[in-house]
Design a protein around this nucleic acid. Structure first.
Lengths: 203, 203
DNA sequence: GTCTATAAAGCGATAGAC
DNA sequence: GTCTATCGCTTTATAGAC
């Protein structure tokens, strides 16, 4: 419906528009964000926005794409190779931390909501974000299997299960804006997922 | 912001309004559904809607509540007690089937999108839907543990992990409207989750 | 590219008759 | 309860000057 990567030359005004749009879309949602508000927050006129982007959908797509790119720029926080328990605990804590960060949840909410009406956006989001994260974790399990730390037939399945256990009720309640249930902390979710993986895939 | 359970006497017009509203909200999303459209589809005037519901938010809340109730009415499909593998396979297939049903995905999308702006709705949805499902599965694991089929310290954790593994990539891609990845069928996800639970929690 | 001003349409909600 | 008609406001998008 709308192309994701426009010519995309970076200019100060264009960046200001994208910053204002990102903040507005993530805070208020797609529909509740008006072009007037974005223009006001960016300090430009509405006509300037339409000079840079085809319309509201294209602006939204550009915001989502830029946001996914940035998530993977600081990849330095990825843990070093160690024994399985240490590695999974570190990776699990990192992943769940990213998943329940306010920015991530807001992006997730608005992309999921628009996915039904903007299929190309949904696909671009998947490729730019979750798909790359999954690939890393799959590679991690392949590495642990290769080193004899775990007995894994299909690293993709193991990664899928590990991420699934991380993205369980703690994540779901955070997504709905509900307070964490008593005694159900993110750290406990990570620990339990790690132990279950270690037991299920013990060599 | 809006109360969830109005007097709620069932009348033909009221039901027609709720049917039209459900169809519209799930298809188009909250914002893109206008009261004019609902009135038109229900075959009533807009004023009649406002005679039955306080406003758009209240109508939406009523739709969500009714939809959650109905999901739990046909509880007869719940499997009988058997050995752990048979029980988990049946329950897992049932749960994942419900989760990736088109109606469920549409409800999930629209509720998640509005959760940030209608906290009471998010809470009501959680209590009416996911919370009850989780309770059942927790009871199931408690039963399996009590019968010595599995060695489970905390049935809630086991249920959380089982549901998490079910609601992994297959569900996520369906949520985004993407086609299933090659060789990653729902049935395979269920089987893998069952085997991992059986191994991790073997007596 | 950037602005001001405005067009054209749609929105949620209500008044008043019956 | 239900209707027709309409209010008052906001929306996306564009025209035209510079």
């Amino acid at each position: 419906m709308v192309r994701i990567s426009p010519p995309s030359r970076r200019t100060p005004k264009r960046d200001a528009i994208l910053d204002a749009a990102q903040c507005s879309f993530l805070d208020l949602g797609y529909a509740a964000t008006s072009m007037d508000l974005v223009a006001s927050r960016a300090g430009v006129s509405k006509a300037t926005i339409y000079a840079h982007f085809e319309g509201k959908e294209a602006l939204f797509a550009a915001v989502v794409h830029r946001r996914c790119e940035r998530e993977f720029l600081n990849a330095d926080a990825w843990p070093e190779a160690a024994d399985a328990r240490t590695t999974l605990a570190a990776v699990g804590a990192h992943v769940l931390g990213v998943l329940i960060a306010a920015d991530t949840l807001a992006l997730y909410r608005v992309v999921v909501a628009e996915a039904a009406r903007q299929p190309e956006l949904a696909h671009a989001f998947w490729e730019a974000g979750p798909s790359r994260g999954r690939a890393r974790i799959t590679a991690l399990f392949a590495d642990l299997a290769g080193r004899g730390e775990l007995a894994i037939a299909d690293p993709w399945v193991a990664a899928d299960q590990f991420v699934g256990m991380l993205r369980a009720e703690v994540f779901f309640r955070a997504l709905l804006g509900l307070p964490p249930a008593e005694g159900r902390e993110p750290a406990a979710t990570v620990t339990a997922a790690v132990e279950t993986m270690l037991t299920a895939y013990a060599p």
